[in-house]
């Protein structure tokens, strides 16, 4: 018997705002304007001072529910033809899992003072995404908890994806980029205490649950190197 080609049952698609409705809604509520450059989907330009408020609203509103931040992207319009706005832009790509639509939010960023408020408190994924944009474009995200380079090494000078960076200019790294601070923070959050410190392989760090009082005695066998509390 041939299986019928009935559509695969999905969960009920809840009614959200359609693209045109959404555009009008955001224009009225946050004074956004549609970016004329958007060829696919909907791109709305928002003022940086209203960015956080707007994203929080988009995330929480009952008929929008943009629960997912897909990416944060930087753009350098340095050599873009007939460009009149600021040199840089940051674009937030949002997705609504409930209503299955997407939205791009664009913020123009000044060349002299390239700063945008961070949204890491609204979306956890913004933490690394904003670090990447800072690394590649030199756009500062104010109030970011750990604005360090993500892809390039710590001795890198300049920002590689800016259009005025010569893309074949290579920069050597002399000392390995130890990520000990991040490791330390993660271990502490899990209740471990760091006993040894310094220039060494992270695997050789001896940790112990902080619940066990530190007596100065050697750590128990088997429980010293990786056992979780």
């Amino acid at each position: 018997m041939i299986a019928s080609h009935a559509p695969v049952p999905h969960g009920p698609i809840q009614p959200g705002l359609g693209a045109l409705q959404l555009e009008e809604h955001l224009r009225d509520r946050f004074a956004m304007v549609r970016d004329p450059r958007d060829l696919t989907g909907l791109t709305m330009v928002v003022a940086p001072e209203r960015l956080r408020e707007a994203i929080k609203y988009l995330r929480d509103a009952e008929n929008l529910k943009f629960a997912m931040l897909l990416d944060v992207v930087g753009i350098d319009y340095l050599s873009f033809p007939d460009h009149r706005e600021s040199r840089f832009a940051v674009v937030y790509l949002l997705k609504s899992l409930d209503f299955r639509h997407r939205l791009s939010l664009k913020v123009w960023v000044d060349e002299e003072r390239p700063a945008v408020p961070s949204v890491h408190e609204l979306y956890k994924s913004a933490n690394w995404a904003e670090r990447e944009v800072w690394d590649q474009y030199g756009i500062v995200f104010t109030d970011h908890p750990n604005l360090k380079r993500l892809l390039n090494h710590h001795e890198f000078i300049g920002h590689a994806l800016r259009k005025d960076y010569p893309c074949q200019k290579r920069q050597k790294l002399s000392v390995n980029d130890m990520m000990i601070d991040q490791l330390e923070a993660r271990l502490k959050s899990r209740g471990y205490t760091l006993l040894e410190h310094g220039e060494q392989h992270p695997g050789s760090l001896i940790t112990r649950p902080s619940a066990v009082p530190h007596t100065g005695a050697p750590p128990p066998p088997g429980g010293a190197t990786g056992a979780r509390p």
Binding site: N152, H153, R170, K172, L173, V175, N176, D177
Partner: peptide, 10 residues
Amino acid sequence: TYKQAPVLRR
């Protein structure tokens, strides 16, 4: 990559 280079060297 240049970020890996010191690891390879070591």
